[in-house]
Amino acid sequence: MENSPISVTLLFLICKVTLGAKPHPLSDEYISQLNAKQSLWMAGSNFEFNNDPKMWSYVKKMAGGTLIHRQSNRSTRSNLRMTGSYDIKVTDIPEMFDAREKWPNCTSIGQVWDQGACGSSWAIAAVSAMSDRICIHSNFTDRPILSPEDLMSCCTDCRYGCDGGYPFAAWEYWFTNGITTGGAYNSTGGCKAYTNQPCGHTKSSTLTLCSTLEPACIPNCQRTCDAHSEVNVDSYDETLYFGFEPYENLYCDTTQSCIEQLKYEIMTNGPVEATFDVYADFLSYKGGIYSTVDLSEFVSSTSAKLIGWGIENNQSYWLGVNSWNTEWGENGLFKFLMLQPFQMLESKIVAAMPNFARSKMDSRPRNNAFKIKNARLRVFSFLIILKIVWLARFCI
């Protein structure tokens, strides 16, 4: 006897009642289940849950945005590997490390960005680590904040702006085209400020609720500075910073050597950009050492900045800076269990060194060099005018 539509519906309802419907990833019930399953980290409400599909849509966009597995245009990419590039000993690596403590003058290291209603983690993590490295390798004399807005709007190879981009392409763009300065929303200290306003994730926030905002977008590429900026509107070229060719930890294996290489890179050259898969439980992270306990709800891939590592209760972790504002996690930061088999953060790392010789501005010699260059141009122009006036005498 064939099953009728009615019997199939009844069977579905019976199974649903028997097994219980899975709670929504933002609900209190789901958060309680997470806390009951493990004790490494604490889950809590980071996002408003009111069965509003707009909020869930916003959260998924914000938590995603990172595209992976893009092939480079350069055939040399396979030779640019972070892994194996350092001859180090285990004793060279401290048990705990925090880049904020080693380089306290570089305040950008601890800066927590707010993406707003935009999937821009790939760009923010990139320019944030670039800014840190400029500060570190200029011996703290040059401390710009690079512009995610410039990167997102002008890097066509990076792809889709607020709808996702490739981290490696972002670092390639720094190498080939340079990135200008520019801080957070409505800031005026740099050339191009971030145009997506900060927004709150819960009703208790003092910020506008993210789900009430229109979907974010990035304007067309403009190679000029903001009209409201303290930087001259025509100074775009003079505010560009460049990096050397990027290198990565792509497909790093799970050996201790691989971990040591990454640690040494961070403690020697500064923070790096890391990409990892986001499962629904990560959204509710409040503190502790995060390790996924629910693989059934994959959300997307995201990027963050790694600034150190540590160990608690015999569990080793990475210390990361997210860009979901300070309402999330440990004031915007998180601890991520090392070598999680389903997320493999260690295998998707990218970084590069700053190239001061190509960068247009620097508070050290480059500012003076730029002024000298302008002065020489003015003198040269004056001499040309004098010569033209002198020659004109013979034409009369």
Rank of each mutant, 00 (worst) to 15 (best):
C118N: 10
P53L: 13
T180S: 14
L213S: 09
L283H: 00
A375K: 13
K192I: 14
A129I: 08
V127I: 08
T208N: 07
R81S: 14
M62G: 01
H228W: 15
G189Q: 11
G178I: 08
E297G: 13
A369W: 12
S85G: 13
R70W: 06
Y185T: 03
Y290A: 09
D237T: 13
A357F: 13
S187T: 14
Y251K: 11
V90S: 00
S300A: 12
T66Q: 02
P198A: 04
E327T: 10
D277K: 06
R100D: 04
T292N: 10
S257G: 15
Y185P: 00
N331P: 07
A125W: 02
S131L: 05
I384E: 04
L19C: 15
L262F: 00
T224M: 13
P167T: 10
V293K: 13
I88T: 09
P219W: 05
F342S: 15
W103I: 03
L151E: 00
F12C: 13
L11T: 02
S205Q: 11
P144A: 08
G65W: 02
L283E: 03
Y166S: 01
T255W: 03
E248C: 02
F342I: 14
F336A: 03
D362F: 07
I289C: 07
P23G: 02
G165S: 12
P23E: 07
M55F: 09
Y251M: 11
W309M: 01
N105M: 14
L26D: 03
F242H: 03
G310T: 00
L11V: 10
I145F: 04
S78P: 10
G189M: 11
S347R: 02
H24D: 05
G110Y: 09
R376F: 08
I218T: 07
S235M: 12
A21D: 15
L67Y: 05
A280W: 07
D277S: 12
H137E: 09
I372R: 13
S381H: 08
N73Q: 15
T9F: 10
F140K: 05
A117F: 01
Q222W: 09
R100W: 03
I311K: 10
R159V: 00
E230D: 12
A375C: 02
L67W: 03
I388A: 14
E48N: 05
C162W: 06
R364F: 11
P94G: 03
G84Y: 07
I136H: 08
A63W: 02
M152I: 09
I134Q: 07
R358W: 06
N105I: 13
V127K: 00
Y30M: 01
D294P: 04
G119M: 08
K348H: 10
I14P: 11
R143Q: 15
G288W: 00
K37T: 07
N73Y: 12
R100V: 00
S284Q: 12
F49P: 11
T224F: 14
Y30F: 15
G189S: 15
F336D: 04
